[in-house]
Amino acid sequence: MTAYRDAVRTALQTLLREDERVFFMGEDVGRYGGPYAVSKGLLEEFGEDRVRDTPLCESTFVGAGIGAAIGGMRPIVEVMTVNFSLLALDQIVNNAAVMRHMSGGQFEVPIAVRMATGGGKQIAAQHSHSLENWYAHVPGIKVLAPATVQDAHDMLLAAVEDPDPVFVFEHQMLYGVEGELDTEATPPSPWKAIVRRPGTDVSLIAYGGSMHKALDAAEELAKEGVSAEVVDLRSLRPLDKETILESVRRTHRAVVIDEAWKTGSLASEISAILAEDAFYDLDAPVERVCTVEVPIPYAKHLEEAAIPQVEGIVRAAKRSMGSG
């Protein structure tokens, strides 16, 4: 069994070993070993040239990553958390996402940016955001959300190999989670959703940290005779509409789980896709389980109440079944 953080580190090591264009930079990724202990030992193995501790200047070190990517390197940039990535939004939205287009296809930006996301650790409003949907809104960038140990490894490899800017969101509650890691197997396409648990009555559509809650909810529902299917979105841009629609056309019911606030969320986007393309297949209104519209509170009971939990998913699935 391998921990999620170790799977990310294994991928980083592979990338740094196999491609001299690859380098890794971010705040405290070197001597500190990474704020989530992801990059422990990398500085010692690869040296200060390729594992770079940056000053606290998100906009400029992300921008420098973009410049280095245009200049022929394959930078992996860690922005400690999505909360700090807001300081780099100018570089991401105004440069990384548009450079290829604005230059008529002359320049590409093969940068991979990793960051932690989500709440659940009682670190309050400024450290608990889930803003993946902000990124998934923007054409020109791609967004991945690995929920499993295997994906944490495989998706980073795919992000670095990709010729476009790829943003990888790692839910902060997952770093300690353990799972199987096979570094030899051919990974499935990172841009496709995967059915993690097949079912026939209702589709639970989730990603990242919430995906595990959806699996737990499916287990609960099974005890009550409800067969729930769990769809792990994996890629948030592009969204794999086919797999989502294929699942809902079979189950005729959908619950979308998203740790973002409901208003303007990816859950909203998926609901709209279902309304557009699966309207006549639905036997019940689409349910959304999202974060309560409040900055994430510090107090444990309030934080738990704010973000999606297993019970809430179970309730939503039952409502969808007409028994909630």
Binding site: F23, A64, G65, G67, A68, I70, P75
Partner: peptide, 24 residues
């Protein structure tokens, strides 16, 4: 390398291009 119309936005790109050159 452009043609940048967000004031100040080209500077980090220049730093990155120079970083790539230095590393290569």
């Amino acid at each position: 390398y452009g043609g940048h119309a967000i004031v100040g936005g080209g500077l980090p790109i220049a730093v990155g291009l120079a970083l790539a050159d230095k590393m290569k």
